[in-house]
Design a protein around this nucleic acid. Structure first.
Lengths: 229, 229
DNA sequence: CCTCTTAGTGTTATATTGACACCATGATAG
DNA sequence: CTATCATGGTGTCAATATAACACTAAGAGG
């Protein structure tokens, strides 16, 4: 069985740059390719678009097939179309970036790729195709985006202490922030719910927990509020 | 002659949202479709990707074929992939937006489309496909982008008075700006060359002309200068 | 009870923004 | 040649936002 078209068509894929955050680092999820080209090399999760499927669906489907991740925050990044980016033929890839709560999700490498693993963004192995370029683009976008949109929450558990949120910003922006100013700013945005609960299982004074409130955020965003950190 | 693939592929196109600016309005360049579907309706210039051609090339080629425009400022906007966006089949389109100096370019409708015309952004006829969505997305991006990157120059002649530049910002942001604050801000960025020349053919006091200096801009950008208006 | 770690909190100097009004210049009309 | 009209070009000040800075409180662990 095959499909014929009057004119030649590039293939279309979707690839995902999945960011996660642990105690130490901003991390990226990579898979080890099981097939050629670049067999055995690390690459971004992704795969070919099916006809009738929006590319965001492609991205989510491949992400689940290859890494087991579902229901992540996902946004389109950029479309890479250099005809030489795949040695086999012209493949256009629509890249997405995802933010996941490492705490919630344990990653199960599934069918397609036995080997999925997290790598610190400063410690990435050589990647297949132009995936290093895609990763670099995603990292820049993330740095740019977090400065004016509160997406840091997507990397944290639902309930988190402010210290953790500040750590997200510091790791992504790669500079330290003043605690008092950060708290003033982030609470001043009015998008966090202060919860009754406090941390448990910490060997020092427990911090209050907060929760991101999307409704409040949408309301502020509609008024053109500036979320710049 | 036809091309066969093992798996079905969506078609790939590139479309352009071309912005221009005249004395009154921010304008968009549309073409009237000569063929079905949507024959006779207005649409964004664009067309099918060729294998071996990066999509930005596709966008530039189609733009020239359909409107005669060349060497415009062009940036990728977003990729639209809803499988129903084209009634014929699944067509993924990579949208670009372009900024052109209306003063320089006279638009010659060329081969593909006899009818290319400028429309005020507030006065757009019904468009083919999902082009209204693409146009809306581009307009939002332009508004967002001009606030923190000096791209307004791309819509003006090489040499322009500050009044014109302010008008660009006012038309895109759709609000009026204070003349003194605007001049302070834009000159403070240090990306404009003050020329010896002044306007001619005006029936009032002639204004000094300025020129955008890309080298200065790149130097400032490298230092992380904030170009926010 | 002492120590250690992190939580939580305000003030001040500085920089940025936004509001605001007048004289200068040159073309045109009477 | 004088008046009028349109636009060019300029500085100050108040309000706001930002950035720098240090201590006490709570709770766990030895």
């Amino acid at each position: 069985m095959s499909y014929s078209y009057k004119y030649a068509r590039p293939a279309v894929t979707a690839d995902c740059v999945v960011f996660g955050l642990d105690e130490e680092d901003l991390k990226v999820l990579l898979i080890q390719r099981g097939i050629n080209p670049f067999k055995g090399q690390w690459a971004l999760p992704g795969g070919f678009a099916r006809v009738g499927e929006a590319l965001e669906e492609t991205a989510r489907r491949e992400l689940e097939e290859e890494t087991g991740l579902t229901e992540v925050f996902l946004e389109q990044l950029y479309t890479f179309s250099d005809p030489k980016r795949d040695p086999r033929e012209h493949v256009v890839t629509v890249a997405y970036y995802a933010l996941v709560k490492l705490s919630d999700h344990k990653v199960h490498a599934a069918t397609d790729a036995r080997n999925a693993a997290w790598f610190g963004v400063e410690d990435i192995p050589p990647l297949a195709f132009d995936h290093d370029l895609i990763l670099k683009t995603a990292h820049e976008r993330l740095r740019g985006k977090i400065r004016y949109q509160p997406i840091g929450f997507e990397l944290l558990p639902q309930r988190f202490p402010l210290r953790m949120l500040q750590a997200v910003y510091e790791k992504i922006l790669d500079r330290s922030l003043d605690k008092r100013n950060f708290r003033k700013k982030i609470l001043g945005m009015g998008v966090l719910d202060e919860l009754e609960e406090i941390e448990t299982d910490v060997s020092h004074r427990a911090a209050r927990l907060y929760r991101f409130n999307k409704k409040k955020y949408d309301r502020m965003a509609k008024r053109g509020f500036n979320f710049e950190i």
